[in-house]
């Protein structure tokens, strides 16, 4: 019963100062939206990276004049190598035909090119668990020691840069999170302070007639907590709407280039944490302003 009265008083306090509450809940929601979006990005970039890694191949270009028997032997050796799933030999002729096929529109220009200028190569596909930047780099480096290897190519640099970007992004989330929590505390504290100012006489009278500290202050703490909760909740709903739009309208186009993306929204425990951070930082905001003002 007392709890019900307290909740009613809290909503009463918020209703009386409606526009500033809407404004501060909106500000908190924007701050949380950025935070949640930054949490969502690495989560899905990881799946993007995974999708891209599936397409990663190592191409081992052979020197000219390697004998056919040695080629067969090398193919056998490569297939036995740990982490390699498939090895496909591309002869000089196949390479030229493929090149011609790819540039068919240029017609006669390609005529006269000799197949000797196209190096023979092995296209190597790796086992799934081997498709990490570190393992691909290490395998490529090992393959480059083969005597007959002219050059070993893989999308390594791009992959490594992307991994680094992901790593920085993950750290940025925490830094941004810290900054956002400070913003949320300060926004809530200021709104609660404004409410306190508006209700100065009421608080004075309540104290004078013998209301306990808890009776006077609890609605203001709850006000802060509720603002944080509503702000964080609003941000999650907004992010879900943006995510759904991206999932249905944008991701099919990206999938065309990078294969099927496994996009996922924030898991329930992470949503719980965000709402929890909202409530706690809102309460802290209320606590801060009450310590100074009441």
């Amino acid at each position: 019963m007392a709890m019900l009265t307290l909740i009613r008083r809290t909503f009463g306090v918020m209703k009386e100062n409606g526009p500033s509450h809407v404004l501060s809940i909106g500000t908190i929601a924007v701050a949380f939206f950025l935070f949640a979006a930054f949490l969502l990005l690495p989560l899905n970039f990881a799946s993007f990276l995974e999708a891209w890694e599936k397409k990663v191949q190592i191409i081992l270009y052979l020197k000219d004049g390697v004998e056919e028997q040695r080629i067969l032997q090398l193919k056998g050796e490569l297939q036995k190598e740990e982490g390699i799933r498939e090895v496909r030999y591309i002869s000089q002729r196949t390479a030229r035909e493929s090149f011609e096929r790819d540039l068919a529109g240029y017609g006669g220009i390609l005529k006269g090119l000799k197949e000797e200028i196209f190096p023979a190569s092995f296209e190597i596909t790796m086992e799934e668990h081997f498709r990490t930047p570190a393992r691909i780099r290490s395998l490529a480096s090992k393959l480059s020691t083969i005597k007959e290897a002219e050059e070993v190519q893989y999308g390594g640099l791009w992959l490594e840069r992307f991994s680094l970007f992901l790593y920085i992004l993950r750290w940025s989330v925490w830094i941004l999170g810290g900054v956002l929590i400070i913003i949320i505390i300060s926004v809530t504290a200021n709104t609660v302070r404004l409410t306190l100012y508006n209700k100065k006489t009421e608080i004075e009278i309540l104290k004078l007639v013998g209301a306990t500290d808890a009776f006077v202050k609890l609605p203001f703490y709850l006000e802060g907590g509720l603002q944080g909760l509503l702000g964080a909740g609003g941000a999650i709903v907004l992010l879900l709407a943006v995510f759904r739009f991206f999932f249905h309208k944008v991701s099919p186009y990206i999938s065309l280039y990078f294969g099927q993306l496994r996009l996922s929204f924030l898991p329930p425990n992470m949503i719980g944490w965000i709402l929890g951070i909202g409530v706690v930082s809102g309460l802290l905001g209320g606590l801060l302003s009450l310590r100074k003002a009441a």
Partner: peptide
């Protein structure tokens, strides 16, 4: 004590 003030004021 501060906690006893409300009782006085009542």
């Amino acid at each position: 004590k501060n906690s006893q003030i409300p009782m006085l004021r009542r």
